[in-house]
Amino acid sequence: MAEAIQRRPRFAAPRGVSANELAMTAFIRDTTALAEVELRKLGRDPIELFTRAIQPTLWLLVFGQVFGRLRAIPTGNLSYLTFMVPGILAQSVLFIAIFYGISVIWERDLGILQKLVVTPATRSALVLGKALSAGVRGLSQGVIIYLLALLLRVPIRFGLGAIAGVLGFIILGSALFSTFSLAVACLVKTRERFMGIGQVLTMPLFFASNAIYPLSVMPAWLRALAKINPLSYQVDALRALMVEGGHPLFGLGMDLGVHLVVLAALVLLTAKLYPNVVR
């Protein structure tokens, strides 16, 4: 056995490990590896997604129907229910993503995170992998809201481009808010504090947006907040793409730009905070 203990030359990496591949290739590989694993787990245990259908159903059936009758909110050429459907989709995306950060605390307590951070994978790949799997979870909400909207006879746009656009924005929005949630989790580090903060964050994000009323009816201070709230851009894009007669207020290019820039900034920030959780 002595021969096996002999000294090996020093390489940058052990044999079989690609040390010189492009950083981008490695980044994509690590991100998809992590997202794939999360989806596999989700596929084995999808119950959670269905319980998530209850809240948006209540919003649309109760709140939407009542306020639609009142005609209290000026929604232009759209009926109130039609106006509200994309808003409730955005809300579901937000609610499902904003508690996603708890998974990093969970994985820390299980010791899984400790193993991930000692692999050569970059921290931003660890973060974006999680964000993308949250993105796909968000798609389930899209399916649910489309079905509800059909039942309620809301005029849906069925063009392939429109639907693909909606799904794309759902993935981006879920990724954005779940990364925000991961950042919060990295800062607070315990489940109890995280759940508390999660509750505190959701409602302000929701109400300071154009999800269930337009910017035009807001007092100036709220409108200012709504304009820096990424959720407003999610709603704006979904409203333009999902329902007949919907128009983007900010422009789809602007909506997309805000999503990409905020997501990238949050991924970089969270990647910096990530190792804190295991220290």
């Binding site: 490990v17 591949e21 590989r29 590896a33 299980l110 010791g111 899984i112 400790q114 000692v118």
Partner: peptide
Amino acid sequence: YVSQMISADGALTGYENLLLFARLYGI
């Protein structure tokens, strides 16, 4: 690295756990 905690991902099979790390280690 093997941590102080017993910590493989219970929701995956042994093979899937290993394949994930094989990818992350850049094999």
